[in-house]
Amino acid sequence: MKEKLTQRLKSLQAEFEAGQNLLADYESKERSLRETLLRISGAIMVLEEMLADSVEEIKSQEKQTIDIHAETQPQGELAPAGEGT
């Protein structure tokens, strides 16, 4: 009887150790994945800001073009059909 209990104890201890090793491996993978997701999130934020800045730059350039066009248009002269309102 004692031998059977000792054998079962060793079996459970080995299973427990294997489970702890597996858990440690999963926790390591989880940390790594969280770090990767954090880097990806940061990259997304940078790209979104760059795109927003790009849109603002395009709008600014369009406004400058319109302003230049308005400055070069002679006063009192009507713009050709289809331009302005």
Results as ranks from 00 to 15, higher is better:
residue 22 L to P: 00
residue 37 L to Q: 12
residue 18 A to K: 15
residue 41 S to E: 12
residue 85 T to I: 06
residue 45 M to A: 15
residue 53 D to W: 09
residue 12 L to Q: 08
residue 11 S to Y: 08
residue 19 G to V: 01
residue 5 L to E: 10
residue 12 L to G: 06
residue 30 E to K: 10
residue 37 L to C: 06
residue 1 M to S: 15
residue 60 S to V: 02
residue 75 Q to L: 15
residue 4 K to G: 01
residue 82 G to M: 02
residue 71 E to T: 02
residue 21 N to D: 07
residue 27 E to I: 03
residue 28 S to T: 15
residue 46 V to H: 03
residue 39 R to L: 14
residue 61 Q to S: 12
residue 82 G to C: 06
residue 82 G to D: 04
residue 38 L to I: 07
residue 58 I to L: 10
residue 60 S to D: 08
residue 76 G to M: 01
residue 27 E to H: 09
residue 85 T to E: 11
residue 59 K to N: 14
residue 20 Q to F: 03
residue 11 S to Q: 13
residue 29 K to F: 02
residue 72 T to S: 10
residue 28 S to Y: 07
residue 80 P to D: 01
residue 49 E to K: 15
residue 1 M to R: 14
residue 23 L to R: 14
residue 77 E to A: 07
residue 40 I to V: 12
residue 84 G to P: 00
residue 68 I to Q: 04
residue 5 L to R: 11
residue 31 R to C: 04
residue 57 E to S: 08
residue 67 D to M: 09
residue 80 P to V: 01
residue 83 E to L: 14
residue 77 E to H: 05
residue 20 Q to I: 04
residue 20 Q to C: 07
residue 46 V to A: 11
residue 64 Q to T: 09
residue 67 D to K: 09
residue 27 E to S: 05
residue 49 E to Q: 15
residue 35 E to F: 05
residue 12 L to I: 10
residue 2 K to Q: 11
residue 75 Q to W: 08
residue 6 T to V: 06
residue 26 Y to I: 05
residue 34 R to C: 01
residue 27 E to Q: 15
residue 45 M to P: 00
residue 66 I to M: 06
residue 57 E to M: 04
residue 20 Q to R: 13
residue 83 E to G: 01
residue 65 T to V: 11
residue 65 T to P: 00
residue 60 S to A: 14
residue 55 V to M: 09
residue 6 T to S: 11
residue 62 E to W: 06
residue 16 F to E: 13
residue 38 L to R: 14
residue 4 K to D: 07
residue 29 K to H: 01
residue 71 E to Q: 12
residue 42 G to Q: 12
residue 58 I to A: 08
residue 59 K to G: 05
residue 77 E to R: 12
residue 3 E to L: 11
residue 54 S to W: 02
residue 64 Q to Y: 03
residue 53 D to Q: 15
residue 69 H to T: 11
residue 58 I to W: 01
residue 7 Q to G: 04
residue 38 L to W: 07
residue 40 I to P: 00
residue 34 R to W: 01
residue 45 M to N: 13
residue 13 Q to Y: 03
residue 5 L to H: 05
residue 36 T to C: 00
residue 8 R to V: 05
residue 36 T to Q: 14
residue 29 K to T: 04
residue 68 I to F: 00
residue 58 I to H: 03
residue 70 A to C: 05
residue 71 E to N: 11
residue 47 L to A: 15
